[in-house]
């Protein structure tokens, strides 16, 4: 059995963070996400990222955090490249830093690229640190505790299950295609593969639904929870503190760190070229490795 280990999957452990009730963790996650959406100032966003990464390392989940960030690396590179290549208009006039052939790298475009990368880093690192240190069942217990409807929680759970499932099925089908000598590449290989992948996945989901219902699962019945989201007074205070911090963060995002103004980043021209070239190289390597994978398949 080959299971693709998702970098976002729960990693068992016994750290304080693992043992902390999922309710304050979820509240802090929600606050971090709200704050990250409210501002585009890279420094506070990087602050959120540093705290999340430090917590992950403290909880012994540095490895999964690193893998998750590595997965996002090419995406972040593409954000910088695209912001520089197709800059939005600068309201107060652009500050050119350097020229790369026909492209002019402006401090505003670079600033916007870095800001979006910082937002992505903040949101994903906060999400990863909660997901890898919280048992999914605890997470759903906490969602229930926070009055999120059960159906919504179940949809979340099923989606999290479906993505790796589709990935595994696709790998097996592509392997079978290669074994049959099919030389199709790119979409021509993918399209015929998608039919058995989805047929297989839906068949499995259908059978899973039968298996779950035979074990007593059904909507509209009073359910109990094995992992009750119990939390002590300290954890209650922590949860409220998270809510307050979230509100304060959103407040700051609407005022001092407004998302409407993205600070330009002024660096020497040569440094700007190096940053953009490095991002472009990472972005290109992603495209190249994808093409190579398709060609090999």
């Amino acid at each position: 059995m080959t299971l693709a280990a998702s970098p976002f999957a729960y990693v068992p452990g016994a750290s304080r963070l693992h043992r902390l009730s999922a309710v304050p963790k979820l509240v802090w996650l929600a606050s971090s996400l709200a704050f990250s959406l409210a501002t585009l100032h890279p420094l506070p966003l990087l602050g959120v990222t540093v705290v999340a990464c430090a917590l992950a390392v403290w909880a012994g989940a540095g490895g999964p955090m690193w893998r998750a960030m590595r997965v996002l690396g090419p995406l972040m590179a593409s954000i910088i490249v695209l912001q520089v290549a197709a800059p939005a208009a600068c309201p107060g006039g652009c500050t050119p830093l350097a020229a790369l052939g026909p492209l002019t790298i402006s401090a505003e475009a670079l600033g916007r690229g870095v800001a979006y990368v910082a937002r992505l880093l903040a949101m994903s690192s906060a999400g990863v640190v909660v997901l890898v240190t919280t048992r999914p069942s605890d997470l759903f217990g906490a969602l229930r505790r926070l009055r999120v409807p059960h159906a919504v929680a179940l949809v979340l759970a099923t989606t999290m299950e479906l993505v790796p499932l589709l990935g595994r099925e696709l790998a097996l089908v592509l392997e079978a295609q290669r074994a049959r000598g099919l030389r199709a590449t790119g979409f021509r290989a993918l399209v015929p593969a998608l039919v058995p992948v989805f047929v297989g996945a839906f068949e499995r989901m259908g059978r899973l639904a039968i298996a779950m219902e035979a074990r007593g699962y059904g909507a509209g019945l009073p359910r109990t929870s094995y992992r009750t989201a119990t939390f002590g007074p300290g954890e209650r205070i922590l949860a409220w503190a998270g809510a307050v911090a979230g509100a304060a963060g959103v407040g700051a995002g609407l005022t001092v760190w407004s998302a409407a103004t993205v600070p330009p980043i002024v660096v020497p021209g040569r440094a700007a070229v190096v940053i953009v070239a490095a991002a472009a190289a990472l972005f290109a390597s992603l495209i190249a490795s994808t093409l190579a994978a398709i060609a090999r398949a």
Partner: peptide, 27 residues
Amino acid sequence: DDPELAATQATVADEVAFGLENLGVPS
């Protein structure tokens, strides 16, 4: 017939607990 259908939860204990949760057994 497919044992993988019994892998829906995060741990073995949660998996077994699933049926009890559905019946409303006190935790």
